[in-house]
């Protein structure tokens, strides 16, 4: 093994790398489904970090086999927490995918910017205001091409 590259460095880098890859994917992707996948990757990293928190050299799985003297076991608490976290993640992902299906059916696109624009137009149409700059969220980075009134009508009417 290369000196300096200990097992712990590799494992921690894997966990953090997964989180970083996920976050980068969240920022870089334009397709909403890919963004959801990036989220899944980042979550895997966080879960791995949680498992590593309870890892122990030369220890066995925390299942009792005999009464009395026990061998060394890894920490059971992070394992239970990871079980919980994974199930939570599955629930949220399934929900995200079902929302994506509906968006795809309504808007026929899953591009992040297009979808956001269509949404803004629809909100403005529902509220009865012209689309204006105040609809930018405080840190939003949506490119806003001017939208004419009839475009608002067409897009807003599709709901």
């Amino acid at each position: 093994m290369i000196p300096g590259f200990t097992l712990e460095l590799i494992l921690y880098s894997t966990a953090l790398g997964l989180v970083s890859i996920g976050l980068a994917g969240l920022v870089l992707s334009h397709h909403l489904f890919r963004i959801v996948l990036a989220l899944v990757i980042a979550e895997a990293g966080a879960n791995l970090m949680l498992v590593l928190a309870g890892y122990r050299w030369d220890a066995v799985a925390p299942i009792l086999t005999t009464l009395g003297e026990q061998p060394q076991m890894v920490d059971p608490v992070p394992q239970a927490m990871v079980l919980t976290a994974i199930v939570i993640g599955v629930g949220i992902q399934a929900l995200a995918v079902s929302i994506l299906i509906r968006i795809r059916q309504r808007y026929h696109t899953l591009d992040r910017n297009e979808v956001a624009e269509l949404m803004d137009a629809e909100i403005a149409a529902t509220a009865g205001t012209a689309r204006d700059v105040s609809q930018e969220a405080p840190l939003g980075e949506r490119p806003i091409p001017p939208i004419t009134d009839d475009a608002v009508q067409v897009r807003g009417g599709r709901s």
């Binding site: 989180v19 996920g22 909403l32 959801v36 980042a42 979550e43 929302i99 949404m119 599709r158 709901s159």
Partner: peptide, 19 residues
């Protein structure tokens, strides 16, 4: 449709938060 988009954007942001 706007509610679905708002939900998914909220879901993604809150997913980052929970990670």
């Amino acid at each position: 449709s706007a509610a679905y988009v708002a939900t998914i954007r909220y879901l993604i942001l809150s997913g980052i938060g929970s990670v």
